Computed example of a mutant assay.
Amino acid sequence: MADLTGPRGPKPQKRLNGRTIMLWSVLAVVLIYYALPLYVMIITSLKGMPEIRTGKIFAPPVEITFEPWKKAAFSACTGLVCEGLSAGFLNSVKILIPSLIASIAVTSVTGYALANWKFKGSEVFFTILIFGAFIPYQVMIYPLVILLRELGLFGSISGLVLIHTIFAMPILTLLFRNYFTSLPDELFKAARVDGAGFWGIYFRIMVPMSLPIFMVAIILQITGIWNDFLFGVIYTKPEHYPMTVQLNNIVNAVQGVKEYNVNMAATLLTGLVPLTIYFASGKLFVRGIAAGAVKG
């Protein structure tokens, strides 16, 4: 038998107390709550319509088929056009990449300036930005429609990129400003003494030391822009609709038979990019937040 006594007496046995049991029970309930709908979506997307009509919603597919996925991607009807989500995917990519680059570039520089280069009225400007983070999007919809119309950008992808950049400014500027504030002030002062200017300090010191918060901002923007529906349906035309708007049109189509397997496959395809981002970089996101994203 194994010796349970050490040099200092018997080894303590691990026991489950009431608090541990309650914690694991809560975690199990939360896991089921979030995992069960995902499970139903996946198995439904792999079934044919005759099998779905049997009503066995939780039963795994008897015969797996990927035809619903193929139809959702390339031939499902979104109104008068039957091209599936493929066109919406390309539009979402065209919207995401410039919106991501523009919003990160603008807000990181703005946060850096507010943290390290104080100017007259900087605190007022920062207060206005923070106030903007709490304004409901619906309040700004019509004024922005007029603005884009006057700029000749309404209904275009460029106009939607501008919208995403504008609405990213309050929260991302706050994140960058707080992170830059948490960095050692001695580095900034030493660089100033050595003759480094605004852009020199930003590119040579701030950016290399701020990769965690850049990852946080990138993850937030990718998921937010990709999942956006409201701005996409308002500020673009049908030929420029992003993937989320195309998904809505597929699911809410009133013609023909309601194909639940195609709808589930289309939903999973639309959420594939943000889900991949979360799974691939979840640890980086948490690390970035813990490294000072909400300090200040």
Rank of each mutant, 00 (worst) to 15 (best):
G288K: 08
K258P: 04
N91G: 05
S45R: 05
K283R: 15
D228W: 08
F180A: 08
S45P: 06
N248C: 00
P170I: 10
I166H: 02
G200Q: 08
A293N: 04
A280E: 01
T267M: 14
Y260V: 09
L38T: 12
I57H: 03
L272W: 07
K11W: 11
A2R: 08
T44V: 02
L151M: 15
Y179R: 01
P212G: 11
V106D: 04
N227W: 00
F89G: 05
I57Q: 03
K189V: 13
K283A: 13
E51T: 05
G88W: 07
D185Q: 09
L175V: 14
T65W: 07
H164M: 09
K295I: 02
L151W: 13
A59D: 14
I95V: 13
F279I: 15
V245C: 04
A113P: 05
V30I: 15
P7G: 12
N261H: 13
Q255Y: 13
F285G: 05
G152I: 05
T236V: 04
G84I: 02
N249Q: 15
Q246K: 13
G9S: 05
I141M: 08
I289K: 02
L144M: 15
S45Y: 04
V233K: 07
A35W: 05
C82W: 04
A35K: 02
G159W: 01
A280K: 00
F180E: 09
T244N: 11
K47T: 03
L38N: 09
P37N: 02
I104A: 00
A253T: 06
N263S: 11
A291F: 11
G282H: 09
V109I: 15
V106Y: 04
I104M: 11
V262Q: 07
V161F: 03
L129I: 14
I52A: 02
C77N: 00
F131Q: 00
T20Q: 14
T223S: 15
E186L: 11
I128T: 06
